[in-house]
């Protein structure tokens, strides 16, 4: 199994999905449609040996209209020692994607954490509720509109060295 075979097999099996490939810093990366993530993960699990889920996390790009929220999944083929990063983008207005819990049990808390911080809705997750933050919280704190410091404070203005 090589990176080329993975690209070829995946392109073949999901020819309608317009997969985009990249390889930043030596890690194979594929941008996939968010509604096909479960099908692709299942295919990778069953056919290409990606049976280890390293991580699921989110990212927020407020300026990318219609693709504000990203779901980043790291998979690992332990047999051939190949890592693969899957990226899927969803609009912030309807942040729906499929849950991978039916393939990877370990996705459970990773998805709960991603939901907790980014509000990404993993359809099919059996217990999608907040995990690290309090249940009463009514916003998703890792989104970029929530600043670390209180933006109304004048004494904390650091336009010289702040982001």
């Amino acid at each position: 199994m090589t990176k080329e075979i993975i690209q070829e097999r995946l392109n073949q099996a999901f020819s309608g999905a317009a997969l985009q490939w990249a390889e930043p810093w030596g890690m194979l990366e594929c941008t996939i449609p968010a509604d096909q993530n479960l099908a692709i993960a299942t295919f990778l699990f069953q056919e290409l040996g990606f049976q280890f889920l390293t991580d699921i996390t989110g990212i927020h790009y407020p300026e990318q209209e219609g693709k504000e929220l990203g779901i980043i999944t790291h998979l690992h083929n332990l047999k051939d020692n190949i890592r693969l990063r899957l990226k899927a983008f969803v609009p912030v207005a309807a942040p729906d994607t499929h849950s991978l819990t039916s393939v990877f049990s370990g996705a459970d808390w990773m998805e709960r954490e991603t939901y907790d911080f980014f509000g990404i809705n993993f359809v099919g997750h059996h217990n999608l509720k907040r995990i690290l933050n309090v249940d009463e919280m009514d916003y998703f704190p890792m989104r970029k509109e929530y600043q670390m410091e209180d933006p109304t404070r004048l004494d904390k203005d650091d336009e010289m060295f702040g982001r």
Binding site: T54, I72, S105, D108, W109, R163
Partner: peptide, 30 residues
């Protein structure tokens, strides 16, 4: 376990996004 750092940089002085893959958060669910 595997302690992972997922770092996204947009070219600024701070990370755009930094995620820690914390091994015990992941295996404790079992």
């Amino acid at each position: 376990g595997e302690l992972g750092y997922y770092l996204v940089s947009d070219g600024g002085r701070t990370p755009y996004r930094l995620h820690f893959r914390r091994p015990c958060f992941i295996y404790y669910q079992a």
